[in-house]
Design a protein around this nucleic acid. Structure first.
Lengths: 218, 218
DNA sequence: GACAAACACGAGCGGTCGCTCGCATTCTGG
DNA sequence: CCAGAATGCGAGCGACCGCTCGTGTTTGTC
């Protein structure tokens, strides 16, 4: 069977259809952000997009598929974002700068796409999306682990893993505070998150670089 | 109308009724923990408690009231718990001990009552319960603020507030990790949370106690 | 212009959920 | 012991939600 071009794609989208899809995803983003996934009704999404429920179901087989598609696009964008944010391991740059740059990237992304936080942190997200979120999470943890173990090659893997998880946890907690504030106060919280992460990590990298760490009772 | 004893209390509970209420609240706790508030159905709670839906509604006017009552009791217990955990400001004890003791208290509470975390962190909690949660949160932040400002009397109130919020945020993030693990790994995460909090706060109190803080470029 | 496919509509189907109501059973006070 | 309150039951009501389907309109192709 050499010429079944795709597994299933008897649908030739027109330009109008692509526009509708984007329209519906935008509407879904706002509805999901305000009410969460479960409480969001497909009729409400269609209404927000200015179309009928039937129209919505011409482009998405069910409610979950909307979240999947939306989440998928966000994850894709996120991957490029954190690829730029965490990829280059530059041992020469001081910790504060590295942390600051990474945090700034992620903050910018989450401020541009508030749905992301809402979709990925609700306890009511559909199964398929949970997998994507978990995959993204372990990818992020893996990246941080890679950075940490390149700086601390002698540390046990389990310790590295815990530290990476804590780093992400601290960042997430800070992100919630950051998104809850605006203007100058938001900037202050951004600085505070960077401070917290730097203080948490400084004793680790400080030891290696021969700086004065917080090692007690030498 | 001088003798309307209470606003509304024509209901004289029997011992059996009190037992049923406790039974229903226990059932609600398990259902809420496993499925969250919105997804939890009153019929499921009644089934879990081994009673009929009608019986449930003899003791609670609606689904929200169940969560309210359950949340109220938890908040009450929580208040005594954090009263013991954060009340005594002992400037002599080292930071690590103080943080460690406080964290241990809260961890113990949350491990005994996993509903608390589920109810207070779902995006779908009913309005009245959100108020209780917010009240508890500002109370906790206030306590931490009090502790911090007693140690750092010269620090601006806004900075103290942000630090207190970050402390709670780091703890909450750690709590999620702690609850997600068991046994030795859980203990390791408990230690990690204490480490993170200590490192975050040490430069602040370290300055005051004349220890070597992380103050850069003096 | 003709024809098919893609697009759009919205009433409504099946199902679930919160909650009610009529009635049976058990407890309590006099 | 008995009247009445408290407790218990469970079928089912009304509302909403995800989703469908028959029908009509627009778009691309020849």
């Amino acid at each position: 069977m050499p010429d079944n071009e795709e597994k299933e794609q008897p649908r030739r989208r027109q330009a109008r259809g692509e526009r509708r899809i984007a329209q519906l995803l935008d509407a879904a983003a706002t509805v999901f952000t305000t009410t969460g996934y479960t409480a969001a009704s497909t009729n409400a999404i269609a209404r927000e997009a200015g179309v009928s429920p039937g129209t919505l179901y011409q482009f998405f087989p069910n409610k979950e598929a909307i979240a999947i598609e939306l989440g998928g696009r966000l994850v894709h964008e996120m991957q490029t974002a954190y690829g730029e944010a965490l990829a280059p391991i530059d041992p020469a740059t001081p910790l504060e700068e590295a942390v600051g740059a990474a945090v700034d990237r992620f903050i910018a992304f989450n401020c541009q796409h508030p749905v992301f936080f809402a979709l990925m942190h609700g306890p009511d997200i559909p199964g398929r999306l949970t997998e994507e979120h978990d995959a993204l999470h372990v990818a992020l943890v893996g990246r941080v682990e890679g950075l940490l173990s390149s700086i601390l090659p002698e540390a046990p893997a389990a310790d590295i893993k815990r530290t990476a998880q804590m780093v992400l946890g601290i960042y997430m907690a800070g992100l919630e505070l950051i998104l809850a504030h605006e203007g100058a106060e938001r900037d202050a919280y951004i600085r505070e998150v960077k401070t917290a992460l730097t203080r948490y990590l400084d004793p680790l990298v400080g030891d290696r670089l021969g700086r004065s760490g917080l090692t007690t009772t030498p």
